[in-house]
Structures are given as C-alpha cells and as structure tokens.
Amino acid sequence: MKKAYGECDEELIGRYLDGEISQEEYDRIGRHLKDCPSCQKILRDNQGISTVFREVLGREVSQADFADLETRALGQIRQKENPWWERISKPAFSAKLLLPASAIAALILFFAIARGPATISGPSAVIEAFSGEVSSVMIIETPESRQTILWYKESS
C-alpha cells in the first residue's frame, strides 16, 4: 500500500539512495526528507555504511595477490587439460606416487585384516587439520589414541 506524504518509509529511502524509484516517489520522498530529520539520518547513515564498506573492500583489493591467483588458476586448467591417466604414465610421476600409494595400501590392508575397522570411542578433539590442493589431513585425539584421517580431493 502506498504510504501517505509525511509518513516515514525506510524501504523507500533505500530505493531513493539506490536510484530505484519512480519520478512520483522521488518527488514525494524529496519533500518528506526536507522536513524529517529522522529520515535524513537514515539516509546519511546508509551512505556512511556504504562508504566504510567500500573503503574496506578497496584496501583488501589493494593487498590481495592477484598475480598469484592468475598463476594458480592457469596452472589448474593446464592440469585439467593434462589428465591424471596421462600424467601417471610419465616415469617421474609414477615413481613419486608409487611409494605413498604402496604405504597407504599396506596400511589399509593391515587395518582391514589385523585390527578390523578403526573406531573412535569417547570424547575426541581435533589437534590439527590441513587442507591442500590434492589432499587433506586431520589429526584427532581420543582418550586412547591419536587418529589421523587422510583424504583425497576428487575434482569433477
């Protein structure tokens, strides 16, 4: 419902500030603002918040390392264009992967056969968590032991 002249309308003040207003509304709010200190303050405060927010963003932009972002992003797309089944066939990559892959396989086999599935009982706390481009690690501590969880990121 349209509000009468003289009535405060915060949403309309917002639209006035954003230029999202009809000529009729513009005239109405313009007249109202002249006589309403409380709406003048709302308008002024909205502008003030906007200014501070933009200053923060401007400073963050000036301190962000966009060159590094570009390098990383380009590196990632080149990797995508050179998929893992091609990279794995390269000798250097195979050698680099062989040892950790064997170690992980041995661990899985050991826990599956000798100990059964690992379980966490009682309260636990996260000691460390790291996240990399390829894998993530989390170490948690329970009253009995420390558990390390390792997982690999699958990219679609």
Partner: peptide, 20 residues
C-alpha cells in the same frame, strides 16, 4: 587459454570483492 586469462584479469577483483 588466452581467453581464460582475459576472463581472470577482467573479473578477479569484482569477484574477490563479492567473496570478501
């Protein structure tokens, strides 16, 4: 790849501000 680089340079700051 050149187009991708243009995309990054053109939009990185705008997208960064939104994310921030």
């Amino acid at each position: 790849e050149g187009a991708f680089r243009v995309l990054v340079r053109k939009y990185q700051q705008r997208l960064f501000k939104i994310a921030f």
